[in-house]
Design a binder for these strands. Sequence first.
DNA 1: CGACGGTTTGACAATCATCAAATACAGTGG
DNA 2: CCACTGTATTTGATGATTGTCAAACCGTCG
Lengths: 243, 243
Amino acid sequence: MIKRKSHPMARTRQNDPVAERLRRLAAIAEFPPLPYLGRSKVLPSHSELVCRGQGLTAASALQDGWAGHVEVLADGRRQITHLVLPGEIIAHPRRGCSLATSTVVALTPVEVCEWRVVDRDPLDALQLALAANDAIEHCCMANQIVRIGRLSAYERIGHLLLEIRDRLSLAGSDTGNRFPLPLTQEAMADVLGLTTVHVNRTLQQLRSERQVTMSAGMVELLDPQRLTAIVDYSPLIFTASRL
Amino acid sequence: MIKRKSHPMARTRQNDPVAERLRRLAAIAEFPPLPYLGRSKVLPSHSELVCRGQGLTAASALQDGWAGHVEVLADGRRQITHLVLPGEIIAHPRRGCSLATSTVVALTPVEVCEWRVVDRDPLDALQLALAANDAIEHCCMANQIVRIGRLSAYERIGHLLLEIRDRLSLAGSDTGNRFPLPLTQEAMADVLGLTTVHVNRTLQQLRSERQVTMSAGMVELLDPQRLTAIVDYSPLIFTASRL
DNA sequence: CGACGGTTTGACAATCATCAAATACAGTGG
DNA sequence: CCACTGTATTTGATGATTGTCAAACCGTCG
């Protein structure tokens, strides 16, 4: 996680999670360096990274920190429709729609990088990676719908944690069953369609049943197999078929 | 709606909702005729149109009937993650992922057409329309997440009906506030993350409060303005900005 | 007519939300 | 270093929304 007001580091092949993830998505070894637009920017939590309806001139991604696509209702109810994890794409202009379809907000301090997307050769490695990214994003949103629509609070949290583990490992920060989870319980509630209070109680249950341990913004899944079975989680189709 | 065992009609410019919708999505007047693969097929309700993980060699769409992307849990719980309305795309192969990411099932008898997608000029009208379709689908899924995550049963149904109205009109069958809704209450429940019983009771409430009337598979929204305000519905970004 | 899928009804239970307050924790400034 | 402030977590008591189970009803089709 980012320390407040830290400097954006110069990203090398080894510590550029965005490039690492795109390279894996394209499944191409000789992935060209990303044509970044200047240095990445560090922004505080709660920053609005993208605003719904705004024209997108560049693609953006998270070098570090967590964000979320968010929808707010007139009476203040909030729903996070899609999480953006370190290494993942925040938004990118599409042929056919260069307007942002949702608002994206930083859920922790973030480091954001941007690059220009051009309609080159359709087999361009970068285009390919972006297309693969869209496919994964689609799967994540389908997962999200199943979680909220048909799983109990207990199952929702377990399911989400398993998905997060999978997605983090795609960006190279593969730390097995122990990984960072810098979300407040309020943010988790807004992802899962629950209230803060209920998230809190359900987390306690997960801990008391020895499914997870949590401390200092880190989670550890104590028995991922068992959890996977209980919540009926299936890995994102890509991570199974392509890597 | 399709009569059982009817013949697929020869589709002309005026009665081909798929072509009509794609033309509007591309926002191009001189849209080329779709290179259909043979005649469209008529399939009964409950048919599996696409199976998760299967390789997609062609794009497919609904000339008529309703379908849904569906996820089934081990214990039988079912969630429809995305509805497919007449004129809409069922699935299409993507660069970066030619595997189907979810299973699609017919919710009524359907008439399905297919065509081959090739990676031509990235500004190709058909590619453009497909890209726009992806954007809309993304918006629909975000809507779906908000509905299930943060709206009450009453609001969910109203919100869904408003979205359906918008989407139907995109395919040309613009019938104002009265439109077909051939879904069983069970299917609606699986879309909305509710039970059949609760959908039934909530529909009664909507009727008793003079929000809708329903009969013979048709719905009519009696006061769309009021409903829009109550459920906090906002039109799909595209229908606002492009048409 | 009987069978079948879909809708409707009732009684009851459970999950999750609401409201309110206490506690813990981190960063700030004196 | 410590009180001070704000945010995040935790707890308790209570209630509403929604789920479960079971059965009756209704229309359509063979």
